[in-house]
């Protein structure tokens, strides 16, 4: 019933993956059980360490905004993104224009090739 899917080059078995996740979960819980047992909620063990600064009241001030994620990636691919974002002008005739360009290129090519 669980079955195996042969894809031609390899196979795919849901049961094997579930077993794998089960074993992984077992090890995870085992390592977790080796941790400190005197942890208590609500004591000063619970407090955030913010480089000795005062921790802000609102969590919004210490969360990482989405714009900051993959900043380096975007910086590294600056020229690529400049061209790509520049292509998305948001003008309605441009959207039609790209469609028309694709149709024209395809129809010229299919007559030549």
């Amino acid at each position: 019933m669980w079955g195996v899917v042969h894809t031609g080059f390899g196979s795919w078995d849901a049961l094997a993956w579930i077993l794998f996740f089960g074993i992984a979960a077992f090890f995870l819980l085992w390592f977790r059980s080796l941790g400190r047992s005197d942890y208590k909620k609500g004591t000063d063990q619970d407090e955030i360490f913010w480089s000795s600064n005062v921790v802000p009241e609102d969590g919004a001030h210490i969360s990482v905004p989405a714009d900051a994620a993959y900043w380096g990636f975007r910086k590294g691919m600056e020229p690529f993104y400049k061209g790509l974002v520049g292509m998305h002008t948001g003008l309605a005739p441009d959207i039609v224009g790209w469609y028309v360009v694709v149709v024209a290129i395809m129809s010229v090519l299919i007559l030549i090739v």
Binding site: D94, G97, V100
Partner: peptide, 17 residues
């Protein structure tokens, strides 16, 4: 520039049509 490409493509499509 971009507009010229669009118009050129439109002419190609119109001619083919």
């Amino acid at each position: 520039m971009k507009k010229m490409i669009f118009i050129l493509s439109a002419v190609i499509i119109g001619g083919l049509t």
